[in-house]
Write a protein that binds this DNA or RNA. Sequence first.
DNA 1: ATGCCCGGAACGTCCGGA
Length: 265
Amino acid sequence: MKIATWNVNSIKVRLPHVLEYLRETAPDVMLLQELKAVNEAFPESEIGDAGYNCAVLGQRTYNGVAVLSKHPLDDVLRGLPGDNTDTQARYVEVETAGLRIASLYLPNGNPVDSDKFPYKLGWMDRLIAHTEELLETGSPLVLGGDYNICPTAADLHDPEAYANDALCRPESRSRYRTLVNLGLTEAFRALHPDETGAYTYWGYQAGAWRKDHGLRIDHLLLSPAVADRLVACDIDKKPRGQTQASDHTPVWCELNSGEREDTPW
DNA sequence: ATGCCCGGAACGTCCGGA
C-alpha cells in the first residue's frame, strides 16, 4: 500500500492538481496540509468521486489538514492534544487501512525572535508527548506531513544561509531528533541515506525551483512495525513543475503487506 | 536588504509563508 503527503498551499487553488495526482498515483492514503479553507469549503464531494474518504480539520485563511483514504476512516482525532488554548488547525489523526495515521503541519516558527518560535518548540514538545502515548498503545503508526524541519545540512541547498532559521535551529532539530529517537524511522532517509539535493519545497521567490534551491521539510515517520514493511519511498517532483504549482511537492512511501516473504524456521 | 512570489481577505494593501 502507498501513503503520500503533500502541502498543497490552498486546496481551493490546487484541487485540479490533487485530483490529477490521485488519478495518476492512486495512493491508498493521502495526507494534505495548508488547506487554507474551512471544513464546509473542503471539496469532499469531488474527492469522494475520486474514491476517497476524508477526515478534515479546516481553518479560514491559514493552516488546515486532512487525511484522504481509499479505506474506511475511523476514530478521528482533530487537533494535537496538550493545549486546549491552541486554535490552529495543524493536526488530524485517524485509523485507516490497519494503521494509526496523522497528517500534521508543524509551525514554521519564523522569525525566531518572535512568539512564533516558542510556539513551534512547544508544539513539537506536545507532538513528542502525544507520540509517546501512541507508541505505548502498540498500534502501527505513521506521522506524515510538513514538519518545517530540515533535519541536517544535507537536506537543504544553502545550510549557511539558513543556520539561524527556525527550520534549522538547534532547538528545532534537537526536538525532531527526540521525536525520531522515540523509535520512529524517517522513510526517505532510511532508504536514501547518502542522497543529497533531495528536496520537497522550493519557494516561489528568486527562481528557487528553476535553480533547484530547495529544502527537504516534508517527512513520513514510521513506527517499528511499519518500518519493517517499508519497501520504497521517494519524492514526486512533477507536481512542483506544473503551472500554478504548490511550493511543496509530494513525498510517498510504499509498504508491503506485512507478511514475511522469507521461509520461517 | 527580510524583498523578489503566491494565496487569502478584501478592494488597498497587508499578513503569512520558509
